[in-house]
Amino acid sequence: MFTLATTQILAAESDGFHAPSISDFFPPAIFFDGTAFEINRIMLVRFIAAIALLTIFVIGARRAKLVPGRFQNLLELGLDFCRRQITYEILGEQLGKKYVPLITTIFFAVFFFNVTGIVPFLNVAGTSVIGLPIIFALWVFVMYLAAGFKRFGFGGFFKHALFPPGVPKVLYLLLTPVEFLQVFLLRPATLVIRLFANMLAGHLLLALCFAATSYLFFEASGAIKVAGVVTLAGGFAFFLLEAFVAALQAYVFAILTAVYIQMSVEAEH
């Protein structure tokens, strides 16, 4: 699907219409050009998403009452989902209690930064540039290492994670490097890439569909205009898909956070 999209992009480019490209994710700076604090369009989108997220939840928390209204019910539904369907489901209630805030925060933050990809005028997911997924993944990485250290002690965790008990010693030659890669590289890296790649691809697909629609409707000649209807319908379908993906990726990120913590603290692999 991606290669197809890419060839379309490349093919379309020769026609001279604005095809979506990777440079979309590196827009020109708006403030502080060239410094470590450079702010471009995507950074602004992230600020907006963060402000929206905080505004909604701070207002919700400030107005939180014993007898909830409609708004509070909706927020509590989301919080309860994170608590029960994600955290307790994986970690159990006793252990999970400690990690509910972490997992809830990650779920809502990732979801809000994802969903900007389908918000009109924002049109790009905050997580479609790799920095934000990296920070989230590092947070999770630190948390699951800390959980392991707390459970087994510093050396104990390494021993437990890298030399899983109940395995013939010879197998450690094979197992230990794999486990090392798993714990210290693959888990955080897959978290980053899964989220970032999904969002980036989603943006490319949406942008392609709408760019093509615009081109076909306004610049193509004659009967080819009709094809614009197809690309518009495709864009609408991808819009719905992206809404789903935004929620799904947030769910996946949160649930993997719980799973990795569980893997760090469980007695046996």
Binding site: F37, M43, T105, V129
Partner: peptide, 21 residues
């Protein structure tokens, strides 16, 4: 990642994390 990307992501995640937690 660009440096500014990491910097702002970090700032945003810290702010969101602190306020939430």
């Amino acid at each position: 990642p660009e440096t500014y990307d990491i910097v702002w992501s970090f700032v945003i995640v810290v702010v969101v994390g602190v306020v939430f937690m």
